[in-house]
Simulated scan of single mutants.
Amino acid sequence: MNEEEVLAEFRAAGALLEGHFILSSGLHSPRYLQCARVLMDPARASRLASALAATMPRDLRAAIDLVVSPAMGGVIIGHEMARALGREAIFVERPQGVFELRRGFRIAPGQKVLLVEDVVTTGLSSREAMKAVAEAGGEVIAAAALVDRSGGEADLGVPFFPLVQLAVPTYPADSLPPELAALPAEKPGSRKAA
């Protein structure tokens, strides 16, 4: 699946939004990709996950023991990636503001993990989730995401495989361009900005 085909899936789902958005990172942006909308169709989610899995080298795919995603945004795509790879999927949550395993999920010592996100902007959530995996005994050997909003700037410390890479501008709240500042801000993400 090429970039235009991926974006066509987002457009078809009404998931490529224009306006003034406050991202989970706290940054502001004129565009937002609502992955929950694109993933609400199981057939579309399966197509996107299969395409995402195909971006990774065969030997890497074979080395993965477990798929881990951060809740909430990564749960569906993580599950679909696990299906595409023939592996199990679990997720980490932030009940007290820090990612941790819950619900009886366990990671065996040394288990090779693929971390899967819906969207990566700064990489903060990914790095926090990777820390939780390491604390549980796992080893994150790669990361994947439907969308890399960083334009390739996010450093996750492991090989990173996004399905599509976009350079969408982001701005701190005190440095908004006038045309963005003139629009009412929406916060469609799942994490409260700090």
Rank of each mutant, 00 (worst) to 15 (best):
167 A>T: 15
11 R>N: 09
82 A>M: 00
138 G>K: 11
40 M>V: 07
86 G>R: 02
36 A>I: 08
146 L>G: 08
80 E>G: 01
95 P>N: 15
117 E>P: 00
181 A>Y: 08
70 P>I: 08
69 S>P: 01
40 M>Q: 15
89 A>R: 02
175 S>L: 13
153 E>I: 13
6 V>C: 07
54 A>Y: 13
11 R>A: 06
137 G>I: 08
32 Y>G: 02
175 S>Q: 15
127 R>W: 02
77 I>W: 12
18 E>M: 11
53 A>D: 01
180 L>E: 02
33 L>S: 02
11 R>Q: 10
124 L>K: 14
146 L>E: 06
87 R>K: 01
150 S>Q: 08
145 A>P: 00
72 M>S: 15
7 L>D: 07
40 M>Y: 14
97 G>W: 10
107 I>H: 14
145 A>F: 02
154 A>Y: 06
98 V>G: 03
103 R>K: 12
135 E>K: 12
3 E>Q: 14
181 A>H: 11
129 A>M: 09
189 G>R: 07
140 V>G: 07
135 E>H: 11
124 L>W: 15
96 Q>S: 12
57 P>D: 00
54 A>W: 15
99 F>Q: 09
36 A>T: 06
186 E>S: 04
46 S>V: 10
11 R>I: 05
83 R>D: 01
130 M>T: 05
27 L>K: 09
114 L>K: 01
89 A>L: 01
7 L>C: 08
52 L>R: 05
88 E>L: 10
34 Q>T: 10
72 M>C: 13
80 E>V: 04
182 A>H: 08
74 G>P: 07
5 E>I: 09
35 C>I: 03
58 R>F: 14
80 E>Q: 12
61 R>N: 05
25 S>F: 01
133 V>S: 00
14 G>C: 10
136 A>H: 13
61 R>C: 01
57 P>M: 03
29 S>M: 10
